[in-house]
Design a protein around this nucleic acid. Structure first.
Lengths: 121, 121, 121, 121
DNA sequence: GTGGTCTAGACCACC
DNA sequence: GTGGTCTAGACCACC
């Protein structure tokens, strides 16, 4: 897993952990049944308090992304079908987000196409 | 002006105000010399404490986006050339941001092109 | 509000707080829009750590029972219709629960009727 | 025996085991002198650590519900009269429990009677 | 070792 | 004053 925490981000640290793990799940880096690092290990790795990581794990379980069991760790839970639809939904929402900002900045779809051409290379 | 404040956002409210006004300037909704709404009026409109709005206005002035003259309100300050380059820089940064997320979700540039085709219509 | 915490209960303290507030909402003691006691006040009253009460409030908000706003406290949120259906659903579930236990103890519905007659008086 | 263990329950697992066996005894599913399953067998069946089951068995013996003789297993101990009075006491306590919750939800005895009528069918 | 709960006490943004 | 986040460190049940 490739987790980095940005202490300066306005996004609370525990939510950064949630996002990073969700991304890992959605990108296929973590699959259904995979064991997540233990709360204490991840806390040590990210130099966070175990409570902060626990909060993230708790939220992930509440959202159905994992199953935490005392004594045997936390495992990823992603019904096969769900992963793909979540992935697509997330991409679309990110893209719409971007489009909205671009449009409110006064750019046209033509401008955006040109931008895309330039950066792609 | 089209401002909406999200109290639940991790981004502090006064920074949301800053962002919204900058967007307005960059999109051309506010031009060099335009009068910003008074601190009290904007606070009332957004249901915020005037202190919060004042904090945003001071920050905008510090960044050179406005000029506050006590007694005669705050006026937008945008040197002619600057607006365009800021606008472009912001669009590029947003687009790169989106691309990064898409790639980390495992999508290819081809996937993104197709998405763009679909949404455009 | 009539909250009592049982330190010996196997139910975690923060869940006891959640239950007590939900009960208060479902019984009509707390209505939509009512202000909950502040985290600090309730913590002092129950002799708990503010974090523990905060955890309960956070969960209540996640379940849609309240809306917490920094600076202006936590307010009960119960759409008028929902309260009644939740109340009935909870009663039925409690009753079924009881019936199951009674039946597994080998009692008949006749036994239960007699018990009810006796206790009612 | 019909045992199901809920790892998420706030009630410790070994106490769930105790409860389940007591219920079995009170309902007549297990009678005086009956042999309980071996600690290892029950642990395997419930996917628990044998230590957890052993803890439950010791507690049951301490309460006088069984007699553990090393080498020849654990046998249920229920003096003839005791079973019936325990059964009744448990039912009454469960019923009072239910009534309390119903009343605190604001239901009247009339409401409860109607509920009973509906479910009975 | 594992996750879950809790206290104590700090700092933040907003009021 | 309000809720939200975070660290530090403890204890619990279960493995």
């Amino acid at each position: 897993m490739n987790l980095t925490i940005d202490a300066k981000s306005p996004l609370p640290v525990y939510q950064q952990v949630i996002q990073a793990i969700k991304l890992e799940v959605l990108s296929g880096g973590l699959r259904d049944g995979d064991l997540l690092p233990s709360i204490r290990d991840l806390a040590k790795l990210l130099k966070l308090n175990p409570n902060t990581v626990a909060k993230a794990y708790y939220a992930l379980e509440a959202e159905g992304f994992s199953e935490n069991r005392s004594g045997s760790g936390s495992r990823v839970r992603v019904p096969a079908g769900r992963q793909d639809s979540l992935r697509k939904a997330m991409l679309e929402s990110e893209f719409k987000n971007f489009l909205e900002k671009a449009v409110s900045l006064g750019f046209t779809l033509e401008d955006i196409k040109q931008l895309a051409e330039r950066i792609k290379k």
